[in-house]
Computed example of a mutant assay.
Amino acid sequence: MAKNILLTGGTGFIGQHLTDLLIENGFSVSVLSRSDRKNTSSVTYYKWDLTQNYINEEAILKADCIIHLAGEGIVEKRWTEKRKKDILESRTKPIDLIFSILKKNNKILDAFVSASAVGIYGAYTNETICEETTQPANDFLGITCQEWEKAVDKINSLGIRTVKVRTGIVLGKDEGFLKKIVPSFKSGLGVILGTGKQYIPWIHIADLCEIYLKAVVTNEMHGPYNACITDDTTNASLSKTLANLFGYKIWLPKAPAFILKIVLGEMSAAVLEGQRVSSEKIQKTGFVFQFTDLERALASCLT
């Protein structure tokens, strides 16, 4: 019988791509969903409701491995205190519920693989190349990621192998990060944000899904892994490359940082700052990125 992988956040951008890859590799897939969905020949849906602290326990008990992708979008809304609480709890609360079910039923998984983010290193721009051992930051993103990963450590305390995938900006066709910025670039109105010198650690959706698959099947993998390309991509270089792919050079002036801070508030740090991040640890597992060239990666998402 095929091993079962349970996904939280399985109906989202990353989850849908990962579901396809898991099925292609012979796994059965279950997905926790807030809405009622009909099962398909390849995916079984189970109900969960975090507002009621409810997860259908059958989904947990059936699973051989759980991949946790769920979480409110970081840049979807202005960071009010309530929004920041929602961002954090949407990541940690599901893990706490899963932990309680696993513990109550003495259920041991093959692995628990959780999303995390390179935001753990903070919204700062400098020349440091952050590794998994780099000290976490004390800003909102850094603290959120630390609490997220601490919740994962509770699963590890049950004797379950855990992997934390610290993800950068994910590039995918008509989805995620590019869905927000492509329309303006396509219309010839692309701009550089702030100084443009802020680094953008990026990864193609195909490579990210392959990392999750490797985390599931590789028993030697445990702990945090950076999931992004180690290069010198900045907001300026990404913007210029994207404009070039649409056949023009950026002609509009840079979007002033002070304007973005007024409009976005504290959330502006997520677009005005960024660090370089090392992918050495994941590559040492034998993982080979399919997309390492930014222009090629972007082009694949535009066709």
Rank of each mutant, 00 (worst) to 15 (best):
S41G: 12
S41K: 15
S42K: 15
V43I: 15
V43E: 08
T44M: 10
K47R: 15
K47S: 13
K47T: 11
K47D: 01
K47E: 07
W48M: 05
D49G: 08
Q52W: 06
I55W: 01
E57F: 07
E58S: 14
A59I: 04
A59E: 02
A63K: 03
D64W: 02
C65R: 00
E72Y: 13
G73S: 15
E76L: 12
K77G: 03
K84T: 09
D86P: 04
L88M: 11
L88F: 06
E89Y: 12
E89M: 14
R91V: 11
R91K: 15
T92Y: 03
K93M: 11
K93L: 15
K93D: 05
I95Q: 07
I95C: 05
D96A: 14
D96R: 13
L97Y: 06
L97W: 04
F99H: 14
S100R: 13
L102V: 11
K104G: 00
K104F: 00
N105C: 09
N105I: 08
N105P: 09
K107L: 05
L109A: 11
D110W: 01
D110I: 00
V113N: 00
S116L: 01
S116I: 05
A117N: 07
A117K: 01
I120G: 03
I120W: 03
I120H: 04
I120Q: 03
G122I: 04
A123H: 08
E127H: 13
E127N: 15
T128I: 15
C130D: 00
Q135G: 01
N138E: 15
N138C: 10
N138M: 13
D139F: 06
D139E: 11
F140S: 10
L141Y: 00
G142F: 06
G142C: 11
I143Y: 04
T144G: 05
C145P: 03
Q146A: 09
E147C: 10
W148N: 07
W148D: 06
A151P: 07
A151Y: 01
K154G: 05
I155T: 03
N156R: 14
G159T: 13
R161Y: 07
T162A: 06
T162M: 04
K164P: 00
V165H: 02
V165A: 10
R166K: 12
T167S: 10
T167I: 14
G168R: 08
G168L: 10
I169W: 13
I169P: 06
V170A: 09
V170W: 02
E175K: 15
L178E: 04
K179L: 11
K180C: 01
